[in-house]
């Protein structure tokens, strides 16, 4: 075990843990935001640069500060490391800069985007973004394409986190999509509009931090905050059958995997509980599901608005609206 200090809070973690995961062990607002890192996907992280933190002391043996900010998701901790996240001005400035970079070519079409309400880029923009833009050029544009008959790709919204590419690489037997092109004209696509057909491709939608990949069976049906997320299980031969069904009245509008507070799929028996395409796209009949009850959601999330009783500081439970 090694001891590290993040924003003045000490934590002991196993050697080889990344700074980000050490911060997640502490929890709360010392956790840097991560747009591309996904602990369940091998090789993810390091790309978006939102999780950059300042290392004020490299280790107990070599307490020199590191000259550059480091990516917390891919930097392993050293014993005696001192890290500054929310307490560092440099980090704050950089996070604002990365947010600006991610948004300059983003269409900002939240009002018609299905991801709105559960979008990590929205959260990031809310916390670190500026109210106006300094970008006067034309935004980069791609046409939306269908990849398979259940998934829609809006490349304009993509932040190139590579998570969906990793899902296809690591979860499915054949990857037919990837990154084409370079620089700011790089795009996620399939080779000559190939369809993505396999049982677990739908998980690409769940790992997408923005609205680039959306569920065609749910598109434009409802805003997510009008739906009630319910924990549910079903008998499934392909996956664990443990999912969240998003209901409006007695109808199931969509099905997703169960995600934790960092937007990552939860574990089931020590393995990530990815769900199969049958559960996600085909089972919209409540009779096929064993509905267990409302899903716990961070009370700050827009999705929790209107639905649940919130504990207020005076301990008087009240229903909002």
């Amino acid at each position: 075990m090694v001891k590290v200090t993040i924003d003045g809070i000490d934590v002991e973690v196993e050697a080889g843990t990344t700074v980000l995961n050490a911060a997640r062990k502490i929890g709360g607002d010392v956790v840097p935001p991560a747009m591309c890192y996904y602990s369940k996907l091998e090789g993810s992280g390091g790309k978006c640069r939102t999780c950059l933190v300042e290392v004020a002391a490299g280790s107990a043996n070599d307490p020199r500060p590191m000259p550059k900010l480091v990516a917390s998701c891919s930097t392993p901790v050293q014993d005696g490391m001192v890290i500054k996240n929310k307490t560092s001005e440099k980090v704050h400035v950089n996070r604002g800069a990365v947010t600006e970079f991610l948004l300059i070519n983003h269409p900002l079409d939240c009002p018609i985007c299905d991801q709105a309400g559960e979008c990590h880029l929205q959260d990031l923009g809310y916390e670190h973004g500026a109210s106006g833009t300094r970008y006067e050029e034309e935004r980069r544009r791609f046409d939306p394409i269908d990849i398979g008959n259940k998934i829609k790709l809006h490349m304009n919204r993509c932040i190139l986190c590579y998570r969906c590419v990793m899902v296809a690489n690591q979860l499915t037997d054949k990857r037919v999509h990837g990154v084409l092109g370079r620089g700011d004209h790089a795009e996620i696509s399939t080779y000559i509009h190939n369809a993505i057909e396999n049982d677990f491709s739908g998980n690409m939608i769940d790992v997408c931090p923005v609205g680039a990949l959306t569920d065609k069976t749910f598109r434009f049906k409802s805003r997510v905050w009008f739906l009630k997320p319910m924990e549910a299980t079903c008998e499934c031969t392909k996956c664990s059958g443990k999912a969240v069904v998003w209901m409006f009245g007695d109808e199931i509008y969509r099905v997703t995997a169960r995600k934790d507070k960092y937007g990552e799929v939860e574990d089931n028996d020590g393995k990530p509980a990815w769900i199969c395409n049958d559960c996600r796209f085909e089972k919209k009949d409540p009779a096929k599901w064993n509905i267990l009850g409302p899903r716990k959601i961070n009370r700050h999330s827009v999705i929790s608005a209107n639905h649940y009783e919130l504990a207020d500081p005076n301990n008087n439970s009240k229903k909002v609206k």
Binding site: G46, C48, R49, I159, R182, D184
Partner: peptide, 22 residues
């Protein structure tokens, strides 16, 4: 540089293109 950026990390991908346009 905007043309040759690999597009992997956001500051370089978006920043080089932005500088080129300005």
């Amino acid at each position: 540089y905007a043309h040759e950026s690999c597009g992997q990390c956001s500051p370089c991908r978006e920043g080089t293109g932005w500088m080129e346009k300005v």
